[in-house]
C-alpha cells in the first residue's frame, strides 16, 4: 500500500482493474456485484460524515431511502432517463441532510446517534403512511428505466447496470479523494480531531459539520437512486435501522477516514454475509456478531490496518 501510494493514480488504476476483472469473473453474479458497488457508495458517504467529520451517525439510511424514493418517483412520474434521476436523488438526500443536519449538529454523543436513528424512523413512518405516493409496505413499483444517455439499454443480466453503477461510484470516489486533500477535507479532519481547537483557530465548526453532513447526504442519495434504478423497486427497507447499522459495521470493519477502508470493509462484509446467509440462512447473524466483536477488540483500525498489524506481529516474533 505504501509503495503503491508513491506512484500517482496507481491505486485508482488497480481499482479500475478490479472492477473490470469482477465483470468477467462473476458473469452470473453481476446483480450481487452491482449491489456491492452501490453499498460501497453508501458506505463512502458514511466515511465522509463519520470518518472525516467525526459525526457519529446510525441513520444514514434516511438519506439513502429518500434518494431512492425521489429517484423512483421521478422515474415513474416525470422521466425515466437515469442521469436526471441520479441528480434528483442526490438533491433529495442533500435537502433532507441539510434540514435535519441543522438540528442534529447542535447535539453530540449519544443524543446525536439517537436523533439520527429517529430521523430515519420518521422517514420510514412517513413512507409507510403515504401509501398513495410510495406504495407503503408493498413498495414503489412500476419503475422502468430508459437507456443510459439514450444509448445503453438496461439488459436482463445486468451488464449495463453494472457498468453504469461502476462508473458513477468511481466518479464519486475520485471526487471524495479530491475532497480529502482539499482545504475543506483537512478542516473536517481537524474538527474530527478536536472541535475546540478548530473553534479556537476560527473555523466555523457547526457550519462545516452541516456542510459535511449535507455532502454525505447527497452521496447517500445517489446510492439510493442507483439502487432504485437498478432494482426497479423501492421498499420500506431502504429506511431500516439494519441498513444503517450494517453500513456502519462495514465502514469500521474496513477502517474509517481513508476511503479505501469503505471499499475493503464493504466487499468483505457483503461477501461474508452472502456466503454465510446462503450456507445457513438462520445463523449468519452469529458470524456477523463475532466478526464485529473481533474487529472492535483486536483490530480497532479496521481491516485496512491488517497488513501493518501483521508486520508488527512478525517483527516482534
Amino acid at each position: 500500500m505504501t509503495r503503491l501510494a508513491r506512484i500517482p493514480f496507481a491505486a485508482e488504476a488497480l481499482l479500475v482493474l478490479v472492477v473490470i476483472a469482477a465483470f468477467f469473473a462473476f458473469p452470473y453474479n453481476l446483480a450481487f456485484v452491482t449491489r456491492i458497488l452501490i453499498m460501497v457508495l453508501f458506505v463512502l458517504s458514511i466515511d465522509l460524515v463519520l470518518g472525516f467529520a467525526g459525526i457519529a451517525t446510525l441513520g444514514q439510511a434516511a438519506m439513502y431511502g429518500t434518494g431512492a424514493y425521489a429517484a423512483g418517483l421521478f422515474a415513474v412520474h416525470v422521466t425515466a432517463a437515469p442521469l436526471p434521476g441520479l441528480v434528483v436523488g442526490m438533491v433529495a438526500g442533500a435537502i433532507l441532510a441539510v434540514v435535519s443536519g441543522l438540528v442534529l449538529m447542535r447535539t453530540k454523543g449519544l443524543t446525536l446517534i439517537m436523533l439520527t436513528i429517529a430521523v430515519a424512523q420518521i422517514c420510514h413512518e412517513i413512507a409507510n403512511k403515504a401509501r398513495d405516493v410510495t406504495g407503503g409496505a408493498d413498495g414503489l413499483r412500476g419503475i422502468r428505466m430508459e437507456p443510459v444517455l439514450g444509448l445503453f439499454e438496461f439488459d436482463f443480466i445486468g451488464r449495463t447496470a453494472y457498468w453504469y453503477v461502476a462508473v458513477v461510484v468511481f466518479v464519486v470516489f475520485l471526487a471524495l479523494r479530491r475532497l480529502a486533500a482539499a482545504p475543506l477535507g483537512l478542516s473536517l479532519r481537524g474538527i474530527h480531531e478536536s472541535p475546540e481547537r478548530m473553534t479556537a483557530i476560527g473555523a466555523p465548526v457547526y457550519r462545516r459539520q452541516v456542510l459535511a453532513y449535507t455532502l454525505g447526504g447527497g452521496i447517500a442519495g445517489i446510492a439510493g437512486a442507483l439502487a432504485a434504478q437498478v432494482t426497479q423497486l423501492v421498499s420500506l427497507e431502504v429506511y431500516s435501522f439494519t441498513l444503517s447499522a450494517e453500513a456502519l459495521i462495514m465502514l469500521i470493519l474496513g477502517g474509517t477516514g481513508r476511503l479505501w477502508g469503505a471499499i475493503v470493509g464493504t466487499v468483505l462484509f457483503m461477501t461474508v454475509h452472502h456466503v454465510a446467509a446462503s450456507a445457513d440462512p438462520f445463523n449468519w447473524l452469529f458470524l456477523i456478531g463475532f466478526l464485529v466483536l473481533g474487529v472492535v477488540f483486536f483490530l480497532p483500525g479496521g481491516m485496512i490496518r491488517l497488513p501493518a498489524a501483521l508486520m508488527r506481529l512478525g517483527r516482534r516474533s
Binding site: A245, L248, L285, F286, G289, V292, L293, V296
Partner: peptide
C-alpha cells in the same frame, strides 16, 4: 466483555454493543 469496552471511544462502544446485540438475537433466534 464490558470491562474492556469502557475505555473505547463512542463509536467503538456502539459497534461492540451492536455486535453483542446481534449475538443475543442470533442465540434466541436459534
Amino acid at each position: 466483555i464490558y470491562r474492556r469496552i469502557y475505555g473505547f471511544g463512542d463509536l467503538q462502544q456502539v459497534l461492540a454493543t451492536i455486535g453483542l446485540t446481534f449475538l443475543m438475537i442470533a442465540t434466541v433466534n436459534r
